[in-house]
Design a binder for these strands. Structure first.
Lengths: 345, 345
DNA sequence: TTGAAAGCGCTAACAG
DNA sequence: CTGTTAGCGCTTTCAA
């Protein structure tokens, strides 16, 4: 075959033109047959469909997007994916959007603000129909880019702050308050906040802040904080707990920034000879399936990941349709299990 | 000129042409300044960079991809994402590819073959530089599309079978054999396979098949199988275990298709008054962080998720660079913990 | 109901 | 080193 493509692939993919030629009509008749079938004579439509099928035509979105007014890409930026709650959000989001012929283009900033800006730029270069991004606290450059682009943007997971456009998420300060209030209600008095807190993880800071405020208002000794910029896993939990206990042996209630860290804290407490929930209560944030099956079963806050994904998708669709920006607060719930005592009357 | 102050959806994004005009050079000089800086006079380059900056230029990939020989998209199809091991694979893959300026476009088939084909088609419509897809057993239409497209394709996670192009993954039959051999070595004699097995999950079938073969060869009673097409979670594990025990009370060794299911099986066994590992051994597949922190800590097979992601990325890069297809078998390991007895001498 | 013509913003020859 | 000239494959007027 004539050599019109060197690099990858064998023969060039069939184009609208090759289909048109085969049927003996013009390019844009085929284009219309695809986008507005009712504007083409049924008999012709059938012949075109047959040719499309025979040639195994796959449209070229690059060309379509360039020529048309908008591409059907939605850029999605998460801060992590690996066994994180954001996987569920992306999962739901992607599935919902695809039903409306919107393709998700994914980026993972790994909690790196610089990387986040790079990603936003890269994603914006696809002229997306919309953007979705975890959090409301971004690299200033990223915020500027997003704002200047005019692309509808949904900030997910967190709604504390000034959204760029729309936001669908939770009030993390309120969650932190609820965590502290729960521990206090269970009779714990010397509280700590433990976990992995990445530089860019402002949600964690908001939760810790909410907890600290409640504790101060209750007149208790200030919240002890033991965090690390490392990724949150059980082994980090064990280490942080050891450090915490060494410094604050009086601690009797621990707020973990993630369930994974809590698993390690639970084991560390046992190793230190402290009974849970009698001597020390533990509450966390996340609630993957495993948490209810831990011994003791972990008390934790469960965010509605699917709801955030679904509502974000709806918001994106609405914004694309020209509706106004939205700010949606999504529910979460405190799962009271065995790692905290029953609340006192 | 319209001022740079109207924020939303106002002016069109700056183009190479607008930058060129501002600097007083031709469009393609700016293009070259971006792609091959050394071919442009340093002083000019500086002025161009300044204009790029001032106008806040974001390239248009749609145009670039159309005009150039290939787009920098890599299409990725997974069968699930929600708290699945594939999240880790995608995570690593995306991060690695981005370092080479390749953008991941994501699709989730949710274990639906029909959906998988749709996704492959949708992704192919971006004229990707490469494709990556979970598994080697696809909708025949998807396989055809992929093959016909000539796009380098890496099948991940599984290497049993005839790859379309390249494959990076594990031998799941071997894993199944290892699971059964482990249970037998620990002295368990009446084995069962329990878990969620979706219609499209051929990996699970291969593992079960491998286990069944070992059991037959050992002359033991045949593998009891208790599966469901539902998603795999602890509660499913509890239900499947109840059904299994009702039918096969003699069971003393259980292979769970996923760790999440095993959590439920562990609890169900306890509820049924069977001690683990004394009366019944449990082994699973997956090994998320939580498993080592279960009581009893779960014996399971740990796949090298990051390795699969990393090697897949390398393979994609190599294929794009024109190297030959690869078939890479990636390691996994059996984590012997407390849910199975010590192996007998 | 269909076709012709004009780009979308960029890259890729080739000149100059 | 830089500019000119053609498209990439499609959508979108506007005519016919």
């Amino acid at each position: 075959m004539a050599n019109d493509s060197i690099p990858l692939s064998g023969r060039p993919a069939p184009t609208l033109a090759s289909v048109a030629q085969r049927v003996g009509v013009s390019v844009n008749t085929v284009s219309r047959a695809l986008r507005a079938p009712q504007t083409v004579r049924p008999e012709l439509k059938r012949r075109i469909d047959a040719a499309l099928e025979e040639l195994n035509y796959v449209p070229n979105r690059l060309a379509g997007g360039l020529a048309g007014t908008r591409s059907n890409v939605v850029g999605v930026v998460v801060t992590s994916l690996f066994y994180s709650e954001f996987a569920a959000v992306v999962d739901t989001l992607q599935t919902q959007l695809l039903q409306h012929d919107l393709q998700v283009m994914l980026g993972n900033s790994r909690y790196d603000l610089q990387e986040e800006q790079r990603l936003v730029r890269a994603l914006l270069s696809w002229r997306p129909a919309a953007m979705a991004i975890i959090g409301v606290d971004h690299h200033p450059g990223a915020t500027d880019l997003l704002r200047a682009s005019g692309v509808p943007t949904v900030e997910m997971w967190d709604i504390c702050g000034e959204p760029i456009d729309s936001a669908v998420g939770m009030d993390h300060e309120a969650i932190g308050r609820a965590q502290a209030e729960h521990l206090i209600a269970c009779g714990y008095r010397h509280l700590a906040f433990v976990g992995s807190v990445r530089a860019a993880d402002t949600r964690a800071r908001k939760r810790a802040g909410g907890a600290a405020a409640v504790i101060e208002a209750a007149g208790l000794s200030p919240l002890a904080v033991e965090t690390s910029p490392e990724g949150g896993n059980p082994s980090l939990g064990e280490r942080l707990l050891a450090a915490l206990l060494a410094e604050h042996p009086e601690i009797d209630g621990i707020i973990c920034n993630s369930d994974a860290v809590a698993y390690g804290v639970l084991r560390g407490l046992e190793a230190a000879g402290r009974r849970v929930p009698e001597d020390c209560g533990v509450i966390a944030f996340g609630d993957p399936e495993a948490s209810a099956y831990m011994r003791p079963a972990l008390t934790t806050v469960r965010p509605s990941r699917e709801t955030i994904g679904r509502v974000s998708a709806e918001t994106i669709l609405a914004r694309i349709a020209g509706e106004a920006p939205r700010r949606v607060s999504v529910d979460w719930s405190l799962q009271h299990r065995q790692s905290t005592r029953p609340a006192r009357a």
